[in-house]
């Protein structure tokens, strides 16, 4: 593959994404947030993918993001809530002193210093160069130490046989799994399924983008409005930030 070919491909991919940004649904502006890398190009530290979740726009009772993730990644359960997987969930937060309530989606926070990666004995729990935290199920032995270590309960253990997994989201009994930030979509220059679903719902509460690119929408919003981490006291530097917490 020659260099010019690569750049041409990148240009085309960028063009497609830009075109996608022009095609807007009513009331929804889809910006070209991710650019597809060439297939042979590895994920790079030049990027750090993250999410900014505006809790003031997240509707109580809406679970479009959860449903979209389930469909996209095929983690439909067996009607057994305690053992069924849960890559993303809606959490209701209430301040008992004021009665103030909030609703927000909670998933893997894609920490820069992830406890799950530290404790994994085989290195199956890993952080990709662009900040996406994944489970390498090829070498996961199912010890569940990562689940003990995660402060967000973001990980699930696959308790039962999986039938007909999605080709882009392999999952199997006896291993641990969690939100992949839709890595298969990100690598193809698309946004995660939850982000898309939230936008389609008209809420547009989740913004996906490159935290290291100051021109990206997520960086600009963070610069303008700020953004907090859940359990910031733990110092994990999460890639998922929230607006309107507290």
């Amino acid at each position: 593959m020659s260099g010019t070919d690569t750049s041409r491909r990148r240009f085309l991919a960028g063009g497609a994404a830009a075109a996608a940004g022009l095609l807007v649904a009513p009331g929804v502006m889809l910006l070209p947030v991710a650019r597809a890398r060439a297939p042979e190009e590895p994920a790079s530290e030049a990027q750090r993918w993250g999410l900014l979740i505006d809790t003031t726009r997240c509707a109580d009772g809406c679970d479009a993001c959860v449903r979209a993730c389930k469909t996209e990644n095929g983690w439909e359960g067996h009607g057994r809530p305690a053992t069924d997987p849960q890559w993303i969930r809606k959490v209701k937060v209430r301040d008992p002193r004021t009665g103030h309530t909030q609703s927000l989606p909670l998933m893997c926070q894609h920490c820069r210093k992830p406890p799950c990666v530290d404790v994994c004995p085989t290195g199956a729990s890993m952080r990709r160069a662009d900040g996406i935290v994944l489970v390498d199920k090829h070498i996961c032995i199912g010890c569940r130490y990562c689940m003990m270590a995660c402060p967000y309960k973001a990980r699930s253990f696959v308790h039962e046989d999986v039938h007909d997994p999605k080709p882009h989201a392999p999952r199997g009994k006896g291993t641990v799994e969690s939100c992949t930030l839709c890595v298969h979509r990100v690598d193809a220059g698309r946004v995660p399924a939850c982000v898309e679903a939230c936008a389609a719902e008209g809420n547009g509460a989740i913004v996906f983008g490159d935290l290291k690119d100051p021109r990206s929408e997520i960086s600009q919003r963070l610069a303008r409005y700020g953004g907090e981490e859940i359990r910031a006291d733990l110092g994990l530097d999460t890639g998922v930030r929230y607006l309107g917490l507290s």
Partner: peptide
């Protein structure tokens, strides 16, 4: 239905749906 793309599940038309 298991392979129905998520975009088609949403209530509003998106790029994906198109």
């Amino acid at each position: 239905p298991r392979t129905l793309p998520d975009a088609a599940v949403g209530r509003r038309v998106t790029v994906e749906t198109l």
